[in-house]
Each structure stands twice: as structure tokens, then as C-alpha cells.
């Protein structure tokens, strides 16, 4: 199995069952893994910020950076490989925050709120999630089975189901 690494503000999709999509060091950023088990098509997104309105120019060139431009792109890229929305399994990890972060920088939380709003509007259910708290996470999607694994820095890989 070959690992395809997804960096910050990036996404990859694949229909090669020998691939695994991996993203490291999700802090406040959010990882979204989607998978259609019938056609074995999946994708993994690592976005950084909630709203593209903060920098429209950036969103043009790097839509993977913002939840509102990245999530639609993740789904449509999977459709292009034959996936169908009603069959997609959706898993989410990341969105961590500082401890008692009472000030205005709760970017992890804002990232998750933005995601929920997008999913709500588009009637997408989250099947499993490991979010919040104050840890770094690695997220992995195996294309052969659709299994998603999350590892908290310093810990071991655990299946997210």
C-alpha cells in the first residue's frame, strides 16, 4: 500500500485500492475523509480556516484552504471518480483548541462549526468524528476498505468508527 500525503490546505481523491491517504499534524485544522464503499472511491481533505470570505483571491488559487470552498470540492472530486453522495461515509478529525481559550482565537471550534453548517445545508451526516480537545492528530484513510484511523501525537493509531 502506498501512502499519499496530504499537506495543510490540500486534498486528494483516489480510486486505487492500493492507496492510503494520510495527513499529519491536524491541530485546529480539520481533516475530512469521505468514502463510497460501492465503487471504492475516497478522498481526504485538510483545511485550515472556516470561511473563504477572509481572502477571496487566496480561495481562487487554493480553495482547499477554507471549509466553504474545500468541502464542495472534496465531494465533487469524488463524484468525478464515480462516487455517489448517498453512499458516502463521512468521518472528521481535528479542530483542536488551546486550553481555556476564552479569547477570540478559537479557530478549531470555528472550523468545526463551519463544517457542520455546510453539512447541515447539504444534508450530509457525519458517521464518526474525533474532534476538539487540545491535541495534534494524524488521519489516515485506506482506499481498499474505507477504514479511517486517527492517531493522537504520542499515542497509537486507532480506527475511527
Amino acid at each position: 500500500m502506498s501512502d499519499i500525503v496530504i499537506g495543510i490546505a490540500d486534498l486528494r481523491v483516489s480510486k486505487n485500492v492500493n492507496d492510503a491517504l494520510v495527513t499529519y499534524a491536524l491541530g485546529s485544522c480539520v481533516g475530512v475523509a469521505v468514502y463510497d464503499p460501492v465503487v471504492k472511491v475516497g478522498g481526504l481533505l485538510h483545511y485550515m480556516l472556516p470561511e473563504s470570505a477572509i481572502d477571496r483571491n487566496k480561495a481562487q488559487g487554493n480553495p482547499e484552504m477554507f471549509a466553504d470552498t474545500a468541502v464542495p470540492l472534496l465531494f465533487t472530486s469524488c463524484y468525478a471518480l464515480g462516487a455517489q453522495k448517498r453512499r458516502m461515509v463521512v468521518k472528521v478529525a481535528g479542530g483542536a483548541n488551546l486550553i481555556d481559550d476564552v479569547h477570540c482565537f478559537r479557530i478549531g471550534q470555528k472550523n468545526l462549526t463551519a463544517l457542520r453548517r455546510i453539512f447541515w445545508r447539504n444534508r450530509v451526516m457525519i458517521d464518526a468524528a474525533d474532534t476538539g480537545r487540545s491535541c495534534n492528530r494524524t488521519m489516515r484513510l485506506n482506499l481498499d476498505t474505507g477504514a479511517v484511523f486517527v492517531r493522537i501525537a504520542g499515542g497509537t493509531m486507532e480506527e475511527l468508527k
Partner: peptide, 10 residues
């Protein structure tokens, strides 16, 4: 990102 993650006080 390390094992300490974001575990610092804001």
C-alpha cells in the same frame, strides 16, 4: 506539531 499539541493556556 508535537506531543504537547495545543495543551497550553490561551
Amino acid at each position: 506539531g508535537g506531543t504537547d499539541g495545543l495543551a497550553y493556556r490561551g
